[in-house]
Design a protein around this nucleic acid. Structure first.
Lengths: 337, 337
DNA sequence: CCTCTTCCCGAAAGCGCTTTCGGTAATTTG
DNA sequence: CAAATTACCGAAAGCGCTTTCGGGAAGAGG
């Protein structure tokens, strides 16, 4: 492969000139540039990224961090869509993504430390847990950062319009004639969970429907199992809801399971609407009606906000709320008389 | 944050000694080491990874490349499990993962070039397409590499025991009384597809069952839609199979859909067995019986093989075949008389 | 023909770290 | 107590690149 020095020797120019030719400086003639480029191609020359970063202080790398309760990492059916889209958008600008470990040869360090060590140009964190100390630390730092799925006044954030999404769901059920609408919620320590609860309550008020405490059950951290358990609690009620708005698709899967095991039918006995629109829910029975979050757009927006900061070389704090929409499938039906 | 030079000034030692203290050289006394470490902690000193890599020629980074037909990247429900497990295993050793773009500031380069540019210590490629020229190039290079889900004599590889998996599936159906067993296959250009076909044929022979060309249908690249179309072709047959072994879970979902749309019942009319055991299939109706590939173990094995090469600093060519097992759920039933 | 620009190019310092090698002081050995 | 180890530390070169700044050559202007 060779170094820039080899290239200089081969072409007879100084390494300064070679470097300039490679980097499109204008104070090198077309002729010598051509020669150098040709020689570079011949010897398969590639600049060493580390050396470049060392001298330019720009690494062309973006650090990514996941922070979610269930520790599934890239298997997360919603977050991985966002990351994939984010990757596409940043790739176009020449950035690489680096998934940092928290382990530097036996010494374990924080993500912030690791990212500083790696000298990344920016950080994207996909976070559901607002209490995560590691995330807090990242947000306090002065590295360009964008946080996805969480709100904060101190840095650029992007998330879906959860309030509107919840309202969409409740209104839809209302229009189907439902009045006893329950909400199986995500934990309030998670922004998305809290916002959807708020949206639910708002919508219920707007519709002059009572907000019954027994119709609002916290199902924790969005897993199938937790959804199932939450639904079982609703099914124990004397006065059962006729429809339930579930804060996440995975939970909704558990919800439907619970309903079926109880000998009831979705949607004939109970209507269920989910949130996220992850891939698998179009294959379950019944196909789940849900509020779709646009992972593509979220990822792109995140990339945009981060790139903006990286080129501006200053910390910005923009908030981008991505619209959601209702996807009608087969898990909701008009209320029985 | 400061550099090693600041640390030297602060402690009064030379940068040589500081570096040695930080790197646990033994020719520095415990006392001075303690002083230096303390000072380092006080000023939040972190070594610059680029400078380190430049001088040690070790980057503590592993390049990862995905190569699959459907371009879903990290959304791939099977591959992302492998990558997640791989990440865990390499993280423990202090390695970071880098997802390279193919774009270096307008100049687009091959993955190999990019990985050389980044000076990664090793490469993991998760590959289904054996014709991918980029992958070929990587395999020809001299960087430590491990390839997942594909076979090759030229580098370390890890994949599931597809032949045995197919055999397991066919035998299972046979034991349920099925004799008309079809195979909806992945494309033969994909190793996994080819191997499962081979396993299917082998098993059929062993059971003295005829291998009918019309019972072996190529469904391409493992998507739901392709599976559905393939099943539709089987359903057009005068002499329909009573059971079908599908080379991938996603295809199996499409297969079941086709059967249902045809007014038939799974498993009462036709038994279906899949391959992979991706998460979502336990939530569909009926829950899919399948051959489970152990993504955790595959990822770990890949990490092991790669780490081995990286520490040995030489290219090894070990082959690791991971066992599979049958997971019985509800999509197969005894044949109707 | 001389001066002033403009165009090209290169010397050298610097980015932050590692590692070889040699040297001094302290310690051990006989 | 002299000689031989041993323990500890630092000068300096090097990793591969960028960028400032100055200087020479060529062209433009008077």
């Amino acid at each position: 492969m060779g170094t820039i020095y080899d290239l200089a020797k081969k072409t007879g120019f100084s390494i300064t000139t070679v470097s300039k030719a490679l980097n499109n400086y204008k104070d090198v003639s077309d002729k010598t540039r051509a020669k150098i480029l040709q020689a570079a191609a011949e010897m398969d020359y590639l600049p060493n990224a580390h050396a470049q970063s060392l001298s330019t202080k720009k690494s062309w790398a973006i650090g990514v961090m996941f922070s979610e309760a269930n520790e599934v990492g890239m298997k997360h059916p919603f977050f991985n869509g966002i990351i994939e889209s984010f990757r596409h958008a940043t790739e176009e600008q020449g950035y690489d993504l680096i998934f940092a470990s928290r382990n530097l040869r036996n010494r374990d360090m924080s993500y912030l430390e690791h990212f500083k060590h790696r000298a990344v140009d920016g950080i994207v964190v996909i976070c559901s847990d607002r209490m995560d100390e590691q995330v807090q630390e990242l947000m306090r730092s002065d590295i360009p950062i964008v946080v996805v799925d969480m709100d904060s006044a101190n840095c650029s954030v992007v998330y879906s319009d959860n309030i509107e999404g919840a309202r969409l769901a409740v209104n839809y059920l209302y229009e189907l004639g439902h009045r006893k609408i329950a909400h199986i919620a995500g934990d309030e320590t998670i922004d998305a969970g809290a916002a959807r609860i708020k949206g639910y309550e708002l919508a219920m008020q707007e519709l002059d429907l009572p907000i019954r405490p027994d119709y609002l059950v916290n199902a924790g951290f969005f897993s199938v199992e937790e959804g199932k358990q939450a639904m079982e609690r609703l099914l124990e009620l004397d006065d059962q809801p006729t429809a339930v708005f579930v804060a996440g698709d995975q939970m909704a899967i558990g919800v439907i399971e619970a309903i079926h095991e109880h000998g009831l039918h979705v949607p004939n006995d109970i209507s269920v609407i989910g949130y996220d629109d992850i891939e698998m829910i179009q294959y379950i029975t019944p196909k789940l009606t849900t509020i779709r979050q646009d992972t593509d757009e979220i990822g792109e927006a995140a990339a945009e906000l981060l790139l903006e900061q990286m080129t501006a070389k200053e910390r910005l704090t923009e908030r981008r709320v991505i619209p959601v929409r209702l996807v009608e499938r087969a898990s909701c039906a008009p209320v029985k008389q």
